[in-house]
Design a protein around this nucleic acid. Structure first.
Lengths: 339, 339
DNA sequence: TAATGGCTGTGAAACGTTTTACTATGTTTT
DNA sequence: AAAACATAGTAAAACGTTTCACAGCCATTA
């Protein structure tokens, strides 16, 4: 089957190219006779408009870029899904890609985004490409940061209040009487990791909990490292009575270690995690959680994006910080005071 | 910042457009002096080539479409990730979208794919758009079906042997001595649902298990319906000694019901599921599973796609059927024979 | 009757590239 | 010194659209 262009349709219908275009876009005056002649020709020739040519002419692509750490991460993709649902009715579609937490990869992807002339970008940034992000903004492409912000960049973002979430998690454990609290943190080179770490540390200090350095261990945001970190905590001469784990991925590792060592929670140890609630459906007893409102993040991001895409007038950057909420379930036990 | 085109670069560097193009594509003869003048102009003006114009000229977009049920489904997206990793080195990128199991939506997406002139398509099809898929193929766009095939369409596909997987699951339960086996199946209007259903039913018949109709219940491929289905099974006057659940999503519902009713497995009831192994990391005791080789599906799909994209000569459709493997763990118990 | 105005359709320019055929230089080779 | 060749750069066509200015026509209106 040969490639068929608007020209072929025009010839086949015996009209000019301009007329066919009018029919395609329902613009201007076309008599009903001609109109049906053209639509007939279109379906007979099985013509499909070439979106590339169209975008070129219009300098508008109806594409938005979505760059996340990892497209197989269901939390990020649930946000992407929300966005998809919001923008598809206006005939936008998404380019989605993973930077795998590698700034160099992210840089290449941003380059691609620029070349592709997307109409907007939703980005979960690594740190270290502020210049490139600024470049995208300079090209008048709206950028919406999700989950993390970037130092020195003024644009829309939507993040949750990590410091607060961590602080309150510790506060809760303290309120139950815990004084020796283990913390499995991620890394401190990302804004999220740092904020959660600091929130926890500040709370520990404020509530005068044990300042035993051995209680602070890094799980590097990975399940395996968190597993090892947990083992360390459990085998301490004086193990913690509670553990706060800074994110869900690491919590998987932590739970594995606890299961394996046949500790029970909350009887032997109290645990609390920080993240999305959906991951833990089948875990018994149900985990007490500082809940990250993923649904809400997706919805807000989608709204902002939609507005950026459709509003004529630019509006000031929308920067949203969502406070996570403590979901008290059954994984933390009260501890006799004064111990 | 104004839009800057190849023309501006040419002017700024004092050369012709053609020369700039040569530099951009490293093609033809350019003296080193001119070359650096041009690259300098490019970075001074912050020029980015317009991929749309380029695609238009080349009639090649470096885009591939990826259409799945739901982009927030981690199993599908782990396949997508494998594909991404494989094709990005050759500077391809992906349009990804969800049809939500709705044929009408799928049709619209296929239309979009056609207009976008993608260079290839990876599709988890619904049933009911064979004509449209054929249209895509007619436009010389390679289509790779994943997880499901489509009646009447000759193209690459890669699926697992659902009938076999179901049959063998039942066979395994039978070999442990089970005779009253409950089956939670999905729906029978999709090829997967049908094949799994038939595999199970045929095995039940072949091994002369109980043919009590009440033991066959539909969970409609949803967790909630599977929950209800499980409750029905458990409250039967003569409940099954084992349950085979046809997919992971439904198994979530099944496990919930079992937990809630405080049945223990494998002591009170044996259970076996069909799906990807990664979902069940933390479930104790570890589930016995007919494992769907998602990794392998992704890898094979990526290889086929890559070949279709790069090979000059067309090759015959590659149709792969993968046999799932039984992973025996701890959720099934031996049953005294003859009961 | 002449002027106005609403329809209907057309031709050509423009969007930003790549590519092809061509010209203009040296530099060797005979 | 002429012929041959390698190198360097250019102008223009083409890719498939949309849009804009215009022209033809018919029906009103003055």
């Amino acid at each position: 089957m040969k490639k068929v262009t608007i020209k072929d349709v025009a010839k086949h219908a015996g009209v000019s190219i301009g007329t066919v275009s009018k029919v395609l876009n329902d613009k201007g005056y076309v008599s009903s006779g001609i109109y049906s002649r053209v639509t007939e020709a279109i379906s007979e020739l099985n013509y499909q408009v070439n979106a590339n040519a169209r975008s070129l002419k219009a300098s508008k692509t109806n594409k938005v870029g979505v760059i996340v750490q990892d497209i197989s991460n269901p939390y990020m993709m649930s946000i992407a899904k929300t966005i998809e649902d919001k923008i598809r009715p206006s005939h936008y579609h998404m380019l989605v890609m993973s930077h795998n937490e590698d700034p160099h990869t992210e840089r290449e992807l941003l380059q691609l985004i620029l070349e592709q002339r997307v109409d907007g970008l939703v980005l979960v940034p690594t740190s270290g490409n502020a210049d490139m992000i600024q470049k995208v903004l300079d090209h008048k492409i709206p950028v919406i940061l999700v989950d993390r912000k970037v130092e020195g960049i003024t644009t829309d973002y939507i993040v949750d209040d990590n410091y607060y979430g961590s602080y309150e998690s510790i506060a809760y454990l303290h309120s139950l009487g815990h004084r020796r609290i283990g913390v499995i943190y991620g890394t401190t080179n990302s804004s999220i990791g740092k904020e959660r770490y600091e929130g926890a540390v500040d709370a520990l200090k404020h509530f005068a909990c044990s300042n035993d350095e051995a209680l602070l261990v890094s799980g590097k945001f990975k399940a395996e490292d968190a597993y090892k970190a947990t083992i360390e905590l459990l085998f301490l001469p004086d193990p913690p009575t509670a553990i706060y784990c800074c994110n869900n991925t690491m919590t998987v590792g932590m739970l594995k270690a606890i299961q394996e060592q046949a500790w029970r929670f909350p009887e032997d140890i109290s645990i609390i995690s920080y993240g999305d609630v959906n991951q833990w459906e089948l875990i018994q007893p149900p985990l007490t959680l500082m809940t990250q409102p993923l649904k809400r993040i997706g919805v807000e991001a989608a709204i902002i994006l939609k507005n950026r895409l459709t509003m004529e007038e630019p509006f000031p950057p929308k920067q949203i910080v969502i406070k996570p909420e403590l979901l008290v379930r059954a994984s933390c036990a009260r501890r006799p005071e004064g111990e």
